[in-house]
Design a protein around this nucleic acid. Structure first.
Lengths: 121, 121
DNA sequence: CGGTATCCATTCTGATACTG
DNA sequence: CAGTATCAGAATGGATACCG
């Protein structure tokens, strides 16, 4: 695939979105933005995510500098996650996106129903 | 997986994001927002997307009411895509997201490098 | 509690070839 | 030009079991 004619930003935007724009990362940001700090299993319960995916998602987000991880070596152990400054700055676009999602879910469903009704006949 | 303890909006947000929040849909919105109207192969060249994925993405977006498709039965055929009103309303959160992506790509890369340097030793 | 390791099914994606 | 069909590899995501 040649790059010559592509819009220069599309690759970069796509690159970042494929990192932080996935389903789970967005939901983690929403939850941490709302609650401030959450433990591993609190996030797991809140998001309805599998242990595996939460672990992978949080590790990636920590690597990307979006969340910070604090380990308390108590018994039982306790690990708290919170947004970094970069993660905080991500809040605004994410809340804009999720608010749009909530407000327009009905319209999308309606469009789908209409489209399916029109093509199925 | 039980739903009882989950935040009620997470499922709905996740549902919409998995529809319209994917990499290609976002880039299509960005491109159409910028250019107004584009033909199939113009989008293909601009985004650097495979023919197959563009076809699937546009069909889904048309079904979701985000883009409208206009077929001109000329020879050679000509198909133009543009944003619907719903698609236009999606512009704002999407541009907020892509602007954040562009502005913070460097910070994410820096965080990654630092993280990898710290764990690899 | 907070993970990691393994396995497996599903989905996504691109390359290629073909059609109207 | 604007797709569709088919295939194969990669990525995603859940279930389960186990560890410190």
């Amino acid at each position: 695939m040649l790059d010559s004619e592509q819009c220069p930003d599309c690759k970069r935007i796509g690159a970042v979105l494929s990192r932080v724009g996935d389903r789970w990362s967005v939901l983690v940001v929403v939850s941490l933005a709302e609650h401030g700090t959450l433990r591993f299993n609190e996030l797991k319960r809140t998001l309805g995510i599998s242990q595996r995916m939460l672990s992978l998602t949080l590790k990636e987000m920590e690597r990307d500098g979006l969340v910070s991880r604090t380990y308390h070596p108590t018994i039982p152990p306790k690990v708290e996650y919170t947004l970094t400054a970069l993660g905080q700055s991500f809040r605004q676009p994410v809340t804009a996106l999720s608010r749009w999602a909530i407000e327009n879910l009905g319209r999308i469903d309606a469009a789908r129903t209409a489209y399916d009704a029109g093509t199925a006949q």
